[in-house]
Design a protein around this nucleic acid. Structure first.
Length: 495
RNA sequence: GGCGCAUUCGUCUAGCGGCCCAGGACGCCGCCCUCUCAAGGCGGAGAUCGCGGGUUCGAAUCCCGCAUGCGCCA
């Protein structure tokens, strides 16, 4: 028996923004397909028309594209097994259902909703396990034919329940055996002609030659049903891989309450795709006992589905942030400048003229790259470079340090002295600025810590900013000096 | 209620019978560096491997129960 070509599909339902847990499934599936030199495709599972949310497909595409995941076949680009949308494949499911009907693996059931409800009530009252009682199993064939032909509403059920057992293999968990008596004869074709998930995915995964059926482990309990359908249809079973879920930081279900649940929101918050990709890839998967940071190339070289942990993993936002910082620090400078520029263009106040000064961004990028964990933090770190009239912070900001608490005049004098020194500086370079400022601090008998804090506040308007001398150089002589003087003046008048 | 899956530091994990009185990462704490904040360096706290029985010379690792969590069916 030859091993079939690896073909893995990502099969989202159009029910809104894809959840990160779902996207992680896509990442793992994609990684495996690519790593194996196989195919990765998208199939839309939209048989539950009631849960449909408009625009979902676009968000699914956008999420994957943002992460750099490509696909070989899908609703948008077609492929040899088109269509890739289940609601457009209805005839195929009917054919499969007919085959199961003809071979006796399935039967038509005319039970009314009322009868089913009553049956359930009785089972509940008797403390019996719920499930279809097999009422229509024994219907006479000629009756069935007549009623179906007459258009009487009915469903098609799979003959599941019997005295045997079903065994299947899950790649991550090994062999799983269950007794068939715990199942009922489940519906595979609804009265409106739509298939249930059970039938649809089997028909499609077989038709599309999927080698590894990857999906969330909420499907594990019904996997025996699917295995039985595969067998009944005479198909060769695929390899089942049931992925664990992602939990919220508190161990509960991951929800909006914990922050972002969709990768598009992470994009919005200033995370970079490679970091999110890396983070999600290693959340619940590991290569060895130490490696955390993987380039895409490395991942593509070493990823294996078999190394996935079956435990549900809690989403650790702090670790994601850390990892994002790693990616930002490791990024090539031109790429970083590009990211900063794009983000600033979006976040800076409208009053700042566009296009933004590229040279300016290039100038400060090396000095902030180690201080940024999220792109969204950049604007607060550098806005004073762009905004000409930075408001001088209130006096109490300057006077909060012990040294100045009762000496506003001294603070004002210190700032004046710095302004004088810098105003007279001919060589406007970082080393010269540093030498001048240190010299001035010494000359006026202040510690650099005390006086530089005042300068930082005056020039940047912030307590926390990029390194002072470099910052002052970039801000430029004229602006730096005038901001120092403005601060000195405000302190002098505040006394 | 029945069935299934899972159970190693707060979190993600390494571990697949002796290398483990359990290793790494995030986070946390301390020190160093230092103009702030970071980054970086060094060090530290943190897991009786869910509990109880076995098997074995030897178990986090194998087996059986129990507990807990999650999921599925309704």
């Amino acid at each position: 028996m030859t091993t079939p070509r690896v073909r893995v599909r990502y099969a989202p339902s159009p029910t809104g923004d894809p959840h990160v847990g779902n996207i992680r499934q896509a990442i793992w599936s994609w990684l495996y397909a690519r790593r194996s030199g196989g195919d990765f495709l998208i199939r839309l599972e939209d048989t539950d028309q009631t849960r449909k949310v408009a625009g979902s497909l676009e968000q699914i595409y956008a999420s994957l594209r943002w992460l750099g995941i490509d696909w070989d076949e899908g609703p948008d680009i077609g492929g040899p097994y088109a269509p890739y949308v289940q609601s457009e494949r209805l005839p195929l499911y009917r054919v499969a259902a007919d085959q199961l009907l003809a071979t006796g693996h399935a039967y038509r059931c005319f039970c009314s909703a009322e009868r089913l409800a009553e049956m359930r009530k009785a089972q509940q009252a008797a403390g019996e396990p719920p499930g279809y009682d097999g009422c229509c199993r024994a219907l006479a064939p000629e009756d069935v034919g007549r009623r179906a032909a007459a258009g009487e509403p009915h469903v098609v059920r799979f003959r599941m329940r019997d005295d045997g057992t079903t065994t299947l293999v899950d790649l991550l968990r090994g062999e799983i055996t269950v007794e068939n008596r715990h199942f009922d004869d489940f519906v595979i074709l609804k009265s409106d002609g739509f298939p249930t998930y059970h039938l649809a995915h089997v028909v499609d995964d077989h038709a599309m030659k999927i080698s590894h059926v990857t999906r969330g482990d909420e499907w594990l309990p019904s996997a025996p049903r699917h295995a039985r359908i595969w067998d009944a249809l005479g198909y060769r079973r695929p390899i089942f891989v049931h992925f664990p879920v992602i939990l919220g930081p508190d161990g509960g279900k991951l929800s909006k309450r914990h922050g972002a649940t969709s990768v598009l929101e992470y994009a919005d918050e200033g995370y970079v795709p490679d970091a999110v990709f890396n983070f999600l890839a290693v959340l619940g998967w590991s290569f060895d006992d130490k490696t955390e940071i993987f380039t895409r190339q490395q991942l593509l070289a070493v990823f294996d589905l078999a190394d996935i942990s079956v435990n549900p993993a809690a989403f650790d936002t702090q670790k994601l942030e850390w990892m994002n910082g790693v990616y930002l620090r490791d990024a090539a400078e031109p790429a970083l400048v590009e990211m900063f520029a794009a983000r600033l263009d979006r976040d800076l106040p409208a009053g700042v003229p566009r296009p933004l000064d590229r040279a300016l961004i290039e100038a400060f990028t090396p000095h902030i790259r180690e201080r940024v964990k999220l792109l969204s933090e950049v604007v607060d770190l550098v806005d004073f470079f762009f905004v000409r009239d930075v408001p001088t912070p209130p006096a109490n900001e300057f006077l909060s340090a012990k040294r100045w608490r009762n000496d506003a005049a001294g603070a004002a004098r210190s700032l004046e002295a710095m302004a004088d020194a810098l105003g007279a500086l001919g060589d406007w370079t970082t080393p010269a600025i540093e030498a001048s400022m240190r010299g001035t601090a010494e000359a006026i008998g202040e510690t650099v810590g005390d006086v530089f804090t005042l300068c930082r506040l005056a020039v940047t308007g912030k307590r926390v900013a990029p390194p002072l001398f470099e910052t002052i150089e970039i801000v430029g002589s004229e602006l730096a000096v005038s901001r120092l003087r403005a601060a000195a003046l405000s302190l002098a008048t505040a006394v």
